[in-house]
């Protein structure tokens, strides 16, 4: 069942089309990644889904209700978190959360906040001013704010941007935990392909405001056939060069004893076996399969 349905959504700023007639669904319990280079239309899409930017045409439906005519009802069931927004810095974590709990008409706000701060292990920060928190702590507080109303859908706009790798990793674990514990659907934008690969069930690629690819991360990477094979060998550079040339492989020697071969995935065993049969002693074999980042680069550069 789709919790969010977007049909023919278009947004133009003057003569510039930021989002060009896109349609997609977000299914119940799914994490859907929205990817694309800068200016692809990701943030504009999120802004329209939150109601802070008005689309030129198209429809947005949450739980089969039209967003434009049921704004308050829809907003009660969704929430949002982003690295680019913050809570009020001058007030404490508790003060911020109690305000938002009341804005979302949460029953027993104190109990709800205490439950969430326990879950995110930040009870000790309740009386700290938000502006004095570290980036990781702020991210946790933002997540608590986004969970206060028990949302069915959360829109996340680059929630790990500006976090160090350790905190970003913990944040991703939190998102995985939130999804598992609360059966929430998440629309997730990021520039970090590893993140998308790790947490998203499905990915949509946007480029110049249009959807250019849509599939699971694994299926998307399968669309790129080239695999990189990196072989380290003892001696016999000339023999390897001759073998690869005869077999019409694309290759280069990064060092005298290291060769990098770009080939189809299915040919990898044949090449390794072939070189080995020539009497070459390989000390290291590294196979780099295509990643989501390769897909991203291919799509971005093809436009």
């Amino acid at each position: 069942m789709a919790v969010l349905q977007i049909k023919n959504l278009t947004k133009q700023f003057g003569s510039f089309t930021a989002v060009n007639n896109i349609s997609f669904d977000l299914k119940e319990g799914e994490i859907l990644g929205l990817l694309g280079p800068n200016g692809a239309g990701k943030t504009t899409t999120i802004q329209m889904l939150l109601g802070i930017t008005t689309p030129n045409s198209g429809s947005i439906r949450y739980f089969d209700k039209d967003f434009s005519t049921n704004r308050q009802e829809c907003l009660r069931t969704i929430n949002y978190t982003s690295a680019f927004n913050a809570l009020q810095g001058r007030t404490t974590v508790w003060e911020n959360l109690i305000v938002f709990a009341n804005l979302y008409l949460v029953d027993d706000p104190k109990k709800k906040i205490l439950k969430l701060v326990d879950y995110f292990e930040i009870k000790n920060l309740l009386n700290s001013q938000y502006k004095h928190l570290s980036s990781g702590e702020k991210t946790r507080v933002n997540f608590i704010k986004a969970l206060l109303n028990d949302p069915k859908v959360i829109l996340m706009d680059e929630p790990t941007a500006s976090l160090d790798p350790d905190i970003a990793d913990k944040t991703l674990s939190l998102i995985e935990q939130i999804k598992q514990d609360n059966k929430i659907s998440i629309l997730y934008t990021s520039h970090n392909m590893n993140e998308i690969d790790r947490i998203c069930d499905r990915v949509i690629f946007l480029s110049n405001g249009k959807i250019v690819a849509e599939d699971t991360p694994i299926n998307l990477t399968k669309k790129i056939e080239t695999t990189t094979l990196r072989l380290t060998f003892d001696k016999g550079k000339e023999i390897i060069e001759k073998y690869l040339t005869e077999n019409k492989q694309e290759f280069e020697f990064s060092k005298d004893n290291i060769v990098i071969i770009k080939t189809k995935e299915k040919l990898v065993p044949k090449i390794i076996f072939g070189i080995s049969s020539e009497g070459i002693w390989m000390t290291d074999i590294e196979i780099q399969k295509p990643t989501l980042e390769d897909v991203f680069l291919q799509i971005s550069r093809s436009k």
Partner: peptide, 18 residues
């Protein structure tokens, strides 16, 4: 403006407040 400066205005206006 206090919420604009704190980058908190979006959070308020995406809540169900009218």
């Amino acid at each position: 403006l206090w919420d604009v400066w704190a980058r908190n205005l979006t959070n308020i206006f995406i809540s169900p407040i009218s």
